[in-house]
């Protein structure tokens, strides 16, 4: 069986681009990828038909081996029609996604995410806690709170024994600072709900 090299190279390029595109998150690119895959496969079917020949219309002077193989062409026609239907449907879906979500990216499955999170997530314990949990406004802890921010704490940690006047009583400054350090229970929880 003779094979057309150009056909094979084009087919390979179409497959490569098609596979790259269907791995994207954007639906339009996925659709383009599927179309490239379908066309690459059509070329493959064409290649299996062997050498190019005359149109397969019966003529009593033509030898049998001079005709092109008609079957692959019939198969390609069928597969073109099928990929046409699928493309039309995918375009409909993409339009619907755009209408619903104003984006053409595929979304995560919420139930999937929920099941994945179940072991480490507890609705009551791990609900998002605001970073600022002190009952006292930061301004009362001396200044505007900038000295107690996450990044500032290690550098100018207050010396032991120092205390801060908070309302009517005094609290140890170290405790107030520890509250705001990374790793404290009260820092904003990680994506899974727990503290990283």
């Amino acid at each position: 069986m003779s094979v057309n090299l150009t056909l094979l190279i084009v087919m390979g390029a179409l497959y490569a681009c098609g596979i790259y595109l269907i791995l994207e998150r954007s639906l339009t690119r996925v659709l383009l990828g599927l179309m490239l895959l379908a066309n690459a496969t059509n070329l493959l079917i064409l290649a299996t038909g062997g050498y190019a020949g005359l149109a397969p219309l019966y003529d009593k002077d033509t030898a049998a081996q001079d005709y092109a193989d008609p079957l692959p062409q019939a198969l390609i026609l069928t597969s073109i029609v099928i990929s046409f239907a699928v493309t039309a449907f995918m375009l409909g879906i993409i339009y619907r996604t755009w209408v619903l979500a104003r984006q053409d990216e595929i979304e995560y499955d919420l139930e999937d995410l929920r099941v994945a999170e179940t072991p480490s997530f507890d609705a009551e314990d791990d609900a998002e806690i605001p970073a600022e949990t002190s009952e006292f406004p930061l301004t009362m802890l001396g200044g505007d709170g900038s000295s107690l921010s996450d990044h500032a704490v290690p550098r100018d940690a207050p010396e032991a024994g120092a205390s801060i006047k908070a309302g009517a009583r005094k609290i140890p400054a170290a405790d107030a600072a520890a509250e705001e350090q990374p790793g404290s229970r009260n820092v904003t929880p990680g994506p899974e709900g727990g503290v990283k």
């Binding site: 895959l37 379908a38 496969t41 198969l75 597969s79 449907f89 879906i93 996604t97 595929i106 499955d109």
Partner: peptide
Amino acid sequence: IRAGVTYVVVSVVSSVLFLISIAMVY
């Protein structure tokens, strides 16, 4: 629609694989 996209893409890819196999068999 979200579930449909997953389903359509996976089905089409498996159909393409099937068609490639048919071409090779032929």
